[in-house]
Amino acid sequence: MSETLFKIFRGERAKGELCGYSVEVTEGMVVLDAINQIQARHANDLAVRWNCKAGKCGSCSAEVNGKPRLMCMTRMDELPLDKPVIIEPMRRFPHIKDLVTDVSLNYEINQQIRPLKPKPREADGTYRMQQKDIERIQEFHKCIECFLCQNVCHVTRDQQVQEFAGPRFFIRIASLAMHPLDTLNRLKELKDVFGIGYCNITKCCTEVCPEDIAITDNAIIPLKERVAGAFYDPLALLWRSLTSVSK
């Protein structure tokens, strides 16, 4: 058992300061345990959002020593304890209080995505899909909506581009666009509404994903390739104009 100093952002509406708290660190502790200990012993009014403590609800997203992470999945023995551990809220989203931010912007973006529009059912009233048709998008369904990727992506975080949906929503669009039953063509809105061209493949979303979803490689790059084929491939455009075939 050892004593470690935590510095936690305390304040409301983006104005506040780092407050120091001493925590007894024991074997197997995660950062969220330390936060709970601080709440119990030092700061009953510390606002923090958490739920499952198992890396599945996506509630306890924060920035631990400057890195966007789930607090419940960050073990204390991964951190250098000779220096204070700094816990801050996600910087991308409007601050509410202490470690809690307003992530409702994400739900507004989500509502702009057209839902699955499946092809007609087969004669016996069912849909049939083979595993090889569906396995690619199963990875995307692991997303727990922690919004760490939305927080770390520099297009939203630094550049504040409003016409950019963000990695979480490219995953959702990929899960629909690559679905074997979906009948909608989503490429024009990907380019014009959701701004996939703003992504410059720096892969920070993949680096921070607690579910290890290969966001860039398996969702964003394949979508960019589809957009390239539909709008920027000169030979494909010529072929389509000659054959008048459009997807």
Binding site: K7, F9, A14, K15, G16, E17, L18, C19, G20, E63, N65, G66, K67, P80, K83, I86, E88, P89, R91, R92, F93, P94, H95, T101, R157, D158, Q160
Partner: peptide, 21 residues
């Protein structure tokens, strides 16, 4: 209490970070 600052900075300065690695 120390290090008073603002979060949700709309224009983080170049190379600004809390990362320690």
């Amino acid at each position: 209490m120390q290090n008073s600052f603002q979060i949700e900075n709309p224009n983080p300065s170049f190379l600004e970070t809390s990362r320690r690695d």
